[in-house]
């Protein structure tokens, strides 16, 4: 017979029922947990896992779009894309900060990303084939991310919640610039329309999948929900995403690549079956650009070593001067 693990019960040996009751009562009252407060070890572990994965996703998320900066079709589009990619770097920083308040170190988190130990969102392992992908990522991928992040902005851990509020306010620009771009192409020349449709065909399902497995297959959801980290289930967030985006995509004159998609009697848009085998294969790095993304991240890390060395040398010199 096997005993339930802390991941299932939330209780780590050494923690008392009273501590847990007090903690859960605070969350039930809508209080935010701050770094110095008592928290279950499993709460801390789950948050570090989630927040660092989230941070890695922001950092790796710069890569598929960054490739297109030099090929932007106009100066306006280029400045927008540069600002967006710069935002993603900033969002990674906000999130690493939130994880650091829980005792994780920046060095360990970066190492976990580069070694492949830590995961990031599967969506960034898909290739960007055309310029329209930049717009479609903004509209669908950032649109899905905002749905998830708006939920997390209400989560029980103060530093994570605050990072999410800041990110959501900036991310709305990412969503809108993508929507604006795709709507323009959808109303443009036949070639532009075809480019927008092709991008939708390739990004629709990955965007649906990035909101996570169905509730029945989501192993961490139990304690995450109980402790106010996840306020909505994956399927609820996905439904909100679909309800918001389907009418707009149709209004733009595009065809959604799901023959089973329909609106039910309550007004909810219902999607056809999702191919989760692909999702898990991409997560495991067997499919998609996982190796290329980590290679690019490692190269950026290595190529930046001289900057870090120079800053360190300056710091050491200042200290030596001050000590004289």
């Amino acid at each position: 017979m096997t005993h339930p693990t802390p991941a299932q019960t939330g209780i780590t040996p050494g923690e008392t029922a009273e501590q847990h009751a007090h903690f859960e009562a605070r969350i039930a009252r809508g209080e935010k947990i701050e770094a110095g407060d008592w928290m279950p070890a499993e709460y801390r572990r789950q948050l570090i896992r989630m927040i660092s994965q989230h941070a890695h996703s922001e950092v790796v998320g710069m890569l598929p779009e960054g490739e297109w900066i030099t090929r932007a079709p106009s100066l306006r589009r280029k400045t927008i894309l540069m600002a967006k990619v710069q935002d993603e770097a900033g969002h990674g920083q906000y999130l690493y900060h939130a994880a650091e308040t829980l005792g994780a170190t920046r060095e360990d988190m970066l190492q976990a990303l580069l070694s492949g130990k830590a995961k990031y969102s599967s969506i960034f392992n898909y290739p960007t084939h055309s310029w329209a992908d930049v717009g479609m990522i903004g509209w669908l991928v950032d649109g899905a991310a905002i749905k998830n992040q708006t939920m997390l902005a209400g989560c029980s851990y103060g530093p994570y919640s605050r990072a999410m509020v800041r990110i959501c306010s900036e991310e709305t620009f990412h969503h809108k610039q993508g929507k604006e771009m795709i709507v323009a192409y959808a109303q443009g020349t036949p070639q532009q329309r075809a480019m927008a449709q092709d991008a939708l065909n390739r990004w629709w399902w990955p965007a649906m999948m990035m909101l996570g497995p169905h509730d029945a297959d989501s192993p961490n959801s139990g304690v995450l929900t109980r402790w106010g980290i996840k306020l909505k289930s994956n399927d609820e967030v996905r439904q909100e995403f679909i309800n918001e985006h389907v009418p707009e995509l149709l209004e733009a004159g595009l065809t959604i690549p799901d023959p089973d998609l329909h609106q039910d009697e309550h007004g909810n848009w219902r999607h056809g079956p999702i191919h989760w085998d692909e999702f898990w294969a991409v997560i495991r790095g067997e499919q998609g650009l996982n190796k290329e993304r980590l290679g690019a991240r490692q190269a950026a890390h290595d190529d930046g070593a001289w900057v870090r060395d120079a800053l360190q040398a300056y710091t050491d010199r200042q200290r030596a001067v001050a000590a004289d």
Binding site: R76, T79, I80, A83, D87, E170, T172, F173, H175, K176, Q177, K179, E180, V183, E244, P247, E248, E251, A252
Partner: peptide
């Protein structure tokens, strides 16, 4: 100003 969401029109 292109970083502000108000810069973009609303559809939907």
């Amino acid at each position: 100003t292109y970083k502000q969401q108000q810069h973009y029109g609303v559809i939907g």
